[in-house]
């Protein structure tokens, strides 16, 4: 069984929700990213969402855009991201998914990507700008490699489309808690619980919620209604602020412990 599916199944049995932190691979450099992945694993992260930097990330807000730019300036590429995953796998078996735009995958070659990603130890891929109705070849190749294909659903997604997303997704469906790009927001969308219930029902898959969740309070609230909570920009910002400071890694650990506790205990 795939590590993502296995972890979500275990959590479901225990009545718990997955803590899914996002970080940009290679920001500020790969050694730091890998160190932070190990730290997140120790803090109880259930799935690591590892961002593949892209020059034109139209789904991302400024925090993640700038992180991608920093990683690219450092020379990051898909090849290096996969090498990084390979290094992570020598020390950790934490479930790990890539968050990527389609073009770096296309440039790598979908077939070669599926093969090399599986071999490196990637468990899932969320390709942000690949619509589920154009994904036949991609899904076939990733399925064959044993990698989960995770697709996005939004508050405006219709019933018909949610069913399609459910069919094309494995592992879980990633629900965008509110319209827009990635980034921290002060308040959660109203009616989130009803929306998540609808997505669960129509897709028939576990539903993890992301976009705009930044505080432990928000995370705990979302944890009570979803199968997983994704936290991206808040962590990416923290990594940027702390990584150059002496002892910065400890601040990231404190953050991760707090977030993990809030999500797992749901308060």
């Amino acid at each position: 069984m795939n590590r993502i599916e296995e972890r979500l199944a275990l959590l479901k049995q225990a009545g718990k929700t997955a803590f899914i932190p996002f970080l940009m691979a290679g920001d500020p450099d790969f050694a730091s990213s890998e160190e932070i992945v190990f730290l997140l694993d120790r803090s109880g992260a259930d799935i690591i969402e590892y961002g593949v930097p892209f020059s034109d990330p139209v789904g991302d807000g400024p925090v993640i855009q700038q992180a991608a730019q920093r990683a690219l300036r450092g020379g990051a590429s898909m090849k290096e991201v996969l090498e990084s995953v390979r290094r992570i796998r020598t020390r950790s078996s934490v479930p790990l998914m890539l968050f990527s735009y389609l073009n770096p995958i296309l440039a790598y070659g979908i077939e070669a990507f599926a093969r090399d990603a599986a071999e490196a130890g990637v468990d899932g891929v969320l390709c942000v700008d690949l619509p589920p109705d154009e994904a036949a070849e991609y899904k076939r190749l990733l399925d064959a490699a044993g990698i989960c294909t995770i697709f996005l659903a939004a508050p405006t997604t219709t019933e018909v489309r949610l069913k399609l997303i459910g069919e094309q997704s494995s592992g879980f469906v990633y629900y965008i808690s509110r319209l827009g790009v990635t980034g921290e927001r002060a308040i959660l969308e109203k009616d989130l619980e009803r929306a998540v219930t609808r997505v669960k029902k129509l897709t028939g898959k576990p539903v993890c919620v992301g976009f705009g969740i930044s505080t432990p309070e928000q995370a705990a609230a979302v944890a009570s209604m979803a199968d997983g909570v994704v936290i991206g920009s808040a962590l990416v910002r923290l990594i940027h602020e702390q990584s150059a400071r002496p002892g910065g890694i400890d601040a990231i650990k404190v953050w991760a412990d707090n977030m993990s506790r809030a999500i797992h205990e749901k308060h």
């Binding site: 034109d56 590429s77 898909m78 090849k79 389609l102 073009n103 440039a107 790598y108 700008d129």
Partner: peptide, 20 residues
């Protein structure tokens, strides 16, 4: 070369890693 930018598959000026 073949690539996807802004939601359309077409010819794109990009490097070998798919960065625009």
């Amino acid at each position: 070369s073949r690539g996807m930018l802004h939601g359309a598959m077409s010819y794109v000026l990009q490097n070998e890693d798919g960065q625009i």
